[in-house]
Each structure stands twice: as structure tokens, then as C-alpha cells.
Design a binder for these strands. Sequence first.
DNA 1: CTGCATCCGCCTCGATACTG
DNA 2: CAGTATCGAGGCGGATGCAG
Lengths: 230, 230
Amino acid sequence: MARRFDQYCPVANAMSIVGERWALLIVRELLRGPRRYTDLTAGLPGIGTKVLATRLRELEDGGVVQRRKLPPPAASTVYELTEYGAGLEEVIHAIARWGARSLGLPKREDDVDPEWGLNAFPALLYPERARGVTETTVVRIDDDVFTVRLLDGRLGVERGAIADPDLEVATDMATFFALASGDLPPGEALGDGRVRLDGEPEALERFFRIFSFAPRLEPAPDGEPRFAHV
Amino acid sequence: MARRFDQYCPVANAMSIVGERWALLIVRELLRGPRRYTDLTAGLPGIGTKVLATRLRELEDGGVVQRRKLPPPAASTVYELTEYGAGLEEVIHAIARWGARSLGLPKREDDVDPEWGLNAFPALLYPERARGVTETTVVRIDDDVFTVRLLDGRLGVERGAIADPDLEVATDMATFFALASGDLPPGEALGDGRVRLDGEPEALERFFRIFSFAPRLEPAPDGEPRFAHV
DNA sequence: CTGCATCCGCCTCGATACTG
DNA sequence: CAGTATCGAGGCGGATGCAG
């Protein structure tokens, strides 16, 4: 059905399944939960209805998406990720971190999805650095508020503020970007008032070590390259 | 120049840069080092020369690829990743792990790139599990031999065998897949002779905990979903 | 309203041929 | 070797139609 790449290679195989235009953006939408056809069109500005229908069929054939009929009261069809499709979460996160580095700040206020944090914090999470950490943080970025919970290294994010967090951070989008990218030391941001804090300064440092879009790869033992011929 | 997705979103931005057909496969090729135009056509069976030329220009515009003229003796043009482009390594690895799960075994012997291990081991590496590990392993899979070096958690892979490794493993492709996916316990593979080992059985277990294409995400604290509305 | 199918004009893809 | 020129087939985005 779908146009395949004719090469025995994991990457080529993956791109044969989810490499078509719009496919990974559909997966991005479905990572937030089951969606109806019209929800998907709304979340994917510019997609043609025919392309959406075709992609959904192809993703179904590829074992990424399954369709489900809701019980009678709703009686509507929803699309959701299969278990295999849900495995694309780490792919989307890696893509998001890479794409964020060249994204720049939003031009208009309403460019920003008010729920962006629900995607952003899972994508920025460094699991190994979060290991063993239990801490609840309320993060206020411009007018968006999120509660970021770490429970022994596992992550949950909610919109809105929770009472009595361990740490509370307030800043603007530009500063948040700079902190998460590692370009701006937390101490400096605190010093010039770009971040307001309720909690220990060390907790702020720890927070942005755990949530960061810095590259995650250790270098090869003797510098580049990672592989060689003997 | 390139067709963009009109949405303020890191994923959409990334897909606008490297989401076009063939683009990520070109990046895959360039992750192995600088390549000439004809090397790329050879490594990408089925690509049209015009598409390759167009993609390279688009990737250059996107800051992913740069072209470089080799000094006079060679006097040839090579394409290589920029620093930003090299950041796609973790994206490609995540895609490769996901794609490998539905790839299946090769049909013909010559489907397999003889250097596949140089890509596979970096893609399978679990950095957090390799932390602090220093060990050299010679891996023989069918007729392909690789030396996998871990030096305090950092990875280097070479073709061929090194003398006096800490561990030496020999198996076939199907068993390697089963071990790396976690479907087959190392002890069982040793028991029925599908793996031959020179070293401690525990070292084999550790090796396939470090090199695995199992999902890397911790679950949310209270099960699904990873995010919620308050 | 939802979930598509159809039609249309344009752009892209893949294949082949050709040039500096 | 490193591309550009050309061309037919098909994919894409946008608008519209329509049955459940």
C-alpha cells in the first residue's frame, strides 16, 4: 500500500511506515490520547482531508494506529496508537528536542498551544538524571502554568498549579528556552530577576539538569568518530 | 524553499527541515562520515539524482548539511553534517530501534550491510546502563565480526576482532535479534547452544541489558497517561 | 456534526538521458 | 564525477459534496 524504501535497514523500514508527509505529526497528535477525525484535522492545520484519510489507513496497515468505535451514546470513531505506535514516543521526543533548537520564540501569543508543557516536559526529561528524584515543581511561563511531578524518577505533568509544591518557578518563554538549552546558567537568571523562585537555588539547577534539550550522547572514547574499521 | 508545516511546534519545525522524503536517510548516510554525491546515490538505492540534489540543497539551507571542497589532489566535493545536523544522531537511533522491531530477518544474505554493527551498537546503547562500565567485547554474528568497546560508559565500535577481549560472543542474526529485544533470556540462549561464549555468563546478561532495543521510557507515576488536566 | 470521497490544478517523484 | 534537463505518473493542498 504505502511507498516503501527498498533497503534492508531499520531506519528505511521505519520511514516506510511513518516517513510519509504528515504521518509523524498525526502520531504526535495521537500521543496525547485517542482523537476523532475532526479533532485531527483541527490539530493539523493545512492537512488535506484526503491525505489524512489515506495516512490513517496506511498507519493502520503499518500497525501504528487502530480505529475504535465508541459505545452508543457517542457512537463516534476514534483513532488511537497501538502499543507499537506508542513506542514512537521516544522518537517524537528526540525530534522535538532537535527541532526546538532552531524553532525560535513564537511570533504571536496564540501561536503557542496552551498545553505545550504537557509535551515539552516529557520530551525534555533526562531519565538518567531524574533517577531517584521525587519532587513536585510548579512552573509558570508567561501565562501558562504547569505542575511537574517527579516520583522516584517517573514523570507526570498537569496543567495548573498544585498546592505546596517543593519548588515554584516563574519566568518568561525566552528565559525558559535559554535555561533548558543550557545557554543561561540558573544562577545568572536568578541574579538579574529573569526567574523568580520559591525554593532552594540548588533545586532550580537540578530542575534544568533534569529537563534539558542538550544532546544526550556520550562521545566516543577517543573522540570522533564513534566507529572505525580495523 | 522547502515545504514547511505552518505550526509553531518543535516537531513540525523539525519535519519542515528533515521531514521530506529521503531526507533522514541522507542524514543516516552522513552520520557515518562525509560522503561524495555518488557515494550517496550508491547508499540510497532508488533515489533519483534530482531528488538527491534537491534534498542536499534543502538540508544545506536548513543548516543540517554543509558541502566542502577537498584539497587539490582529490578536488572532489563532499557533503557532511553540520554540528546541528549531527544532533540528529539520537533521532536516527530512536527511529532505528523502533523500525528494527518490525523489520524481521533479512531474506537474502546480501541484504545486510556488512558494516551494520557500526550503526547498530550505538543505536542500541542504553547510556544510563552503560554508566561506569569498561569492557571490550568481540561479537560474531553469522560472518560479521565487531569489536564493541565501552570505556567508562562511552562507546566505540570497530569491524573485526581485537585480541584478548573481556568477552567474546558468537551467535546468529535471529538469536541476536531475540536477545537484543529481550524476548530471549541470555541463559536460555546459552543453554541450547544458540550462543557460544568466552567469558562469564553474567557478562553476557550485562551486555544485552546495555545493548537493547526495548523502550526506554519510564511509565508515569500513576500509570497512563503521562499528562492530565487539573 | 462527523467521516470521509470526489474533483482540480500544481508540485513532486522516480527514471532516463544528457552535459561540463 | 557531479550534477542538470526532461517527462509521465502520481501525490499534495484546497474546495466542495454528501451520507449517516
